[in-house]
Design a protein around this nucleic acid. Structure first.
Lengths: 252, 252
DNA sequence: GCAATTAAATTGTCAGACAATTACCTTCCG
DNA sequence: CGGAAGGTAATTGTCTGACAATTTAATTGC
């Protein structure tokens, strides 16, 4: 096997890319066993540590799994929706936090996508989805809930809504949009009044989904989006004012 | 640093998780330099190859980048939208191909999300987005275009539409949904008639976006979705019939 | 025939070494 | 004094060889 020595990439990166291509192209099917590390080292004419680094790269993306022992080795892994969810969420979270994405942009993206799911959820949701939504709404009404827990419950409710659409691909795509917003939402300190308003919105959404009323669900989501944006702007403004005051105080 | 020896995970996986946590939690900020491999090996009380495997795992997820030389080392990488796109697309593609997601489900997810972007695109698209859409439509009208190229152009057009919404987070989320569909779409052999119909839909969409008519864009997308589903079902049915004929022929 | 033991294959980890690359410092010459 | 050449140190990239841990399969003993 030829590896381009003039490539800017590491050998392990090249090997990982070569194996990844074989998986994506279908040459290596699910649960197929890769050659042993020693055989791969021979094949690519590199040492075993280099092969191992390549395999770890693939393992990090859940493309392969490894097993020790006589019949062990590296196997092509069936990428589960669960694993894909997880990867999507960490990637989305990092993307948002590292690129200074504004609250407004992230919020718009989230609710735009979520509103798209609402009609499907209204038409197809099962009793379990509805029950999960009601459960989270009840939790959110507890006054002693911390802001973090309130946000977590918020995420859970919205995931129940998305799952209610009954399309796993949609759920997967939305996972990133919904979950990645949580750190941004956690920056908001919810007052008792704003919590009450949000719970009211959630109740309207759940009612609409229960009634199969797509339009009402969409309207409630749209208004919730606007309300969330307002909350976010208030917090930003208050923070800016406070920073200004502090600056004035130290300058004095 | 303590690593759980009873953990089911490899040492390199544990180390990778520990460093990843520091990045996600913000303890290690963008462009911060990690300790050298030798120092990490000391810190975690493992050998350098083990540390390297951990670093390769993180590199595979674009969380770090490495640089050789005196002032080199591993640095926390700013995850760019570009990199995130790429990861999303490969993950989505594998998820669809490995889990036997039906054409219908994938198609519904794609068009549901895309329709959500249409109103924003109609309101905000720049002249460049419109030009890209017109360009791809012109390309699709060429009769000597291969099926693969036709599909690629289709993807490009829809990406232009999504980008027209002017929300990079939305574009990122949609990248997976749109691009991952391409292999599935490539299974469809487009007849001259179906190509003409699709180009007509695309023209309607572009016209609506140009006019800022969100409703018309949504309607055209919705009808295009239905039409695509019909095409897919026809192909599946034809394939099933052919398989049946072949089976009957061999049984004879 | 069955259970216990042994052998073999494979991944996981370690130690040490050298090569390649890059920034920085020193030295020498103009 | 300045600049260029070369040397030096730090760091990652790669290799070799070895041993440990784990799991399956074969073998042996009863």
């Amino acid at each position: 096997m030829k590896l381009d020595p003039a490539s800017p990439k590491d050998l392990s990166a090249q090997i990982a890319a070569a194996i990844r291509d074989e998986i994506v192209s279908g040459k290596l099917i699910v649960d197929a066993r890769l050659p042993s590390e020693a055989e791969l080292a021979d094949h690519f004419d590199v040492s075993r540590p280099t092969v191992r680094e390549a395999l770890k790269r693939l393992a990090a993306q859940s493309l392969i799994r490894t097993q020790r022992g006589a019949t062990g080795g590296a196997f092509v892994n069936r990428l589960s929706f669960e694993e894909a969810y997880g990867q999507q969420i960490t990637t989305s979270t990092l993307l948002l936090s590292m690129n200074a994405v504004s609250f407004d942009v992230a919020c718009e993206a989230r609710y735009t996508l979520e509103r798209a799911c609402a009609p499907l959820a209204a038409a197809r949701r099962g009793p379990d989805h509805l029950a999960r939504m009601r459960l989270e709404i009840a939790r959110q009404a507890q006054p002693d809930l911390s802001d973090e827990d309130f946000c977590a419950s918020d995420v859970a409710l919205h995931r129940a809504l998305v799952d209610g659409a009954g399309n796993p691909v949609l759920s997967y795509q939305l996972a990133g949009a919904v979950e990645a917003m949580q750190p941004l939402m956690n920056m908001i300190t919810f007052t008792a009044r704003s919590r009450g308003a949000i719970v009211a919105f959630h109740t309207r959404i759940a009612d609409a989904v229960e009634a199969g009323d797509a339009t009402a669900a969409d309207t409630a989501l749209s208004e919730l989006c606007d309300y969330t944006l307002t909350l976010g702007r208030d917090v930003m403004q208050a923070r800016a004012t406070r920073a200004q005051d502090t600056a004035a105080g130290t300058a004095d």
